[in-house]
């Protein structure tokens, strides 16, 4: 596999966007956006060298296996793929990862997690969706629970979260539930994003734009 990236700074991937604009719209600095471009190049050329992240490349990065099927990884990919064209472009990658930045607004993290769990995109998390997600998690883990136990866990969680008792969890109920259980969105923060320039320092020698406060 050849190097597609650092030696040709003027050749950008399809969907490339100006780092200064992306930095103005996200919690990232210009330097961090440029470092993310290094990561993006690596991910987007891991299987198909076209500078776009395909689902198989996303799965390969997450699981070290391009054929790994995972409900949640699929949902994350679909949310990152804002244009719904089957690939993640650089701008989509940066804007979506911005939600996972430690400095991103808590309400953005809560809203993203809601959309993630609203599998059928109805604007509500329904009981069947919750059970489907629990079953998917059990399938990927070594944890074995009886169907009665799964039903009990889903019932209890739904009873606690669905405070309006209308059989579905809306965004306000989700927000209230997360405020009672903040650990639920722990995975919505990636501390790595604060150190991204250390993880991908090679852009520094060729950076074109100075950061400004």
């Amino acid at each position: 596999m050849g190097c597609f990236c650092s030696t040709s700074k003027n050749v950008k991937t399809p969907g490339y966007e100006d780092p200064t604009i992306l930095a103005s719209e996200t919690p990232f600095t210009v330097s961090e956006v440029e470092a993310l471009y290094e990561l993006f190049l690596k991910l987007s050329n891991s299987i198909i060298e076209d500078g776009l992240i395909h689902k198989e490349e996303f799965q390969l990065a997450l699981f070290r296996n391009e054929n790994e099927k995972n409900l949640f990884a699929d949902r994350i990919f679909d949310l990152f793929d804002v244009k719904r064209n089957g690939v993640i472009e650089f701008g989509e990658f940066v804007r979506s990862l911005g939600v996972f930045h430690p400095n991103a607004a808590l309400e953005d993290k809560i809203a993203f997690a809601f959309r993630l769990y609203d599998l059928r995109q109805t604007g509500y998390i329904e009981r069947e969706e919750l059970k489907e997600m629990v079953l998917a998690l059990l399938h990927e883990s070594d944890l074995v629970l009886s169907d009665d136990m799964i039903e009990a866990i889903v019932d209890k969680t739904f009873k606690d979260a669905d405070t309006k008792d209308d059989g579905r969890i809306d965004q306000d109920e989700w927000k209230a539930f997360v405020s009672q259980h903040p650990s639920l969105i722990k995975n919505m923060t990636l501390p790595y994003l604060k150190d991204i320039t250390l993880a991908f320092p090679s852009f520094i020698a060729r950076t074109e734009v100075e950061d400004s406060e």
């Binding site: 699981f63 996972f100 209890k156 790595y192």
Partner: peptide
């Protein structure tokens, strides 16, 4: 035996598919 107090969303949040830190591993 899992306690019935287990939170379904807590369980779900443990999925490897939601662990994006893997993207940053070299």
């Amino acid at each position: 035996v899992a306690p019935v107090t287990m939170n379904a969303f807590e369980l779900i949040s443990k999925s490897q598919g939601l662990n994006l830190s893997s993207l940053f591993e070299k």
